[in-house]
Design a protein around this nucleic acid. Structure first.
Lengths: 152, 152
DNA sequence: TTGCTCCTCACGTCACGTGAGGTGGC
DNA sequence: TTGCTCCTCACGTCACGTGAGGTGGC
C-alpha cells in the first residue's frame, strides 16, 4: 500500500536494520532462510530494500518477539498471508473458486489459532500483573513498617 | 509454603521436568548455571528435588516464556526475590534497618520495571488481537463473496 | 581520494536437543 | 535379576553476535 513509486525507495541494509531494531546480520540470516529478500542488489552486490520489505521485517519481528514463534513457523504464516494477498491480484482471477476457498480456509484457521494463542497469553499476563501488584502492596507495607521502626 | 514435611518430598528429575513441561537436560543446565539446584542427591548421584524446587522452576519458566528474560536476568530477579523472602526469616533480624530498606528498594524497583514491561506487552498484544479480528472479518467477507459466486 | 557502509567467510554464544556408553534404584 | 530412569560427556542446532579481511558507493 506504500507509494507505487518509481522504485526510488532503495534502502540500505543498515537503515532497514535500524528501523526494525535488529542487526544487519539478522537481515542477511533471514535472506539465507528465504524469509526476507531485498527488493534488489547494486551491481557491486549491496542489498537494496523497499518499504514493503521493512513492513515484512516488522511483521516477522512481531510474530517472533510478541508471539514466540520460531522462524520456520513464521515462514509458513507469512506464506499463507502472501497467498491471501494474492487473492486481490488480477492474475489470480484465473484460479478456480475451489482453490480460492482452500486458501481462505487455511488463512482463517491460522487466524483462529493465533487469536486463541493471543487470548491465552493475555490471560497469563493479566494474572502475572496481578501477582506483581499484590507483591508491590506487600513491599509498601514492609517499607511503612520499617519507616515507623527506624523513624529515619 | 508447601508442607514443612519431613523432607519425604523427594522428586526425581524426570518427574519435575514433566510437571514443568521441560526436559531433564534443561534442569541439569539450570543447575550448571547455578539457577536451580536439587534439594539433594542420592549416594549414587541421582538428583532429588523438593516441592520448593518445582515452584522455583515454574517461576523461571514464567519469567522466560512470558516475559522474555534471558537466564542471566532471571538469575538476578530470583536473587532479589530470595533476599526479599529472607526478610521474613529470624536469622535475618540481625541485619540493620538500613540494609533491609536497601533490599526493599531494590525489589520495589524490579517490581516496578516488570509491571511497566507487562503493561507494554499487554498493550501490544491487545492491538495485535485487534488486527487479527479485523482480518478475520475481511476473510469472512471474502468467503461470503465466494459462496455467492460459486453457489456451492 | 577519503570515510563510512557494505560484502563474505567463519568461528563464538546462548539455551538447550540428542545420542553414546555406562551405572543406579524400587 | 530385569527394566526403567538416571548419570556424564560431548557434539549438534537455532538465531543470531562478532571480528577478519576486503570491496563498494555518494
Amino acid at each position: 500500500m506504500a507509494s507505487m513509486a518509481t522504485a526510488k525507495e532503495a534502502l540500505r541494509i543498515g537503515e532497514v536494520a535500524e528501523r526494525a531494531g535488529v542487526s544487519a546480520r539478522t537481515l542477511r540470516y533471514y535472506e539465507e532462510l528465504g524469509l526476507l529478500s531485498p527488493a534488489g542488489k547494486t551491481p557491486g552486490g549491496a542489498r537494496r530494500y523497499a518499504e514493503g520489505d521493512v513492513a515484512r521485517l516488522l511483521r516477522i519481528r512481531e510474530l517472533q518477539e510478541l508471539m514466540g514463534f520460531d522462524l520456520e513457523e513464521i515462514a509458513s504464516i507469512l506464506a499463507a498471508e502472501d497467498r491471501m494477498s494474492d487473492l486481490r491480484q488480477e492474475w489470480f482471477a484465473q484460479e478456480t473458486a475451489a482453490r480460492k476457498a482452500e486458501i481462505l480456509a487455511e488463512v482463517v484457521e491460522i487466524n483462529e489459532r493465533m487469536q486463541a494463542q493471543v487470548r491465552r497469553k493475555l490471560d497469563r499476563l493479566q494474572s502475572f500483573l496481578g501477582d506483581l501488584q499484590a507483591k508491590a502492596d506487600l513491599y509498601a507495607e514492609r517499607q511503612a513498617e520499617l519507616g515507623a521502626t527506624v523513624q529515619s
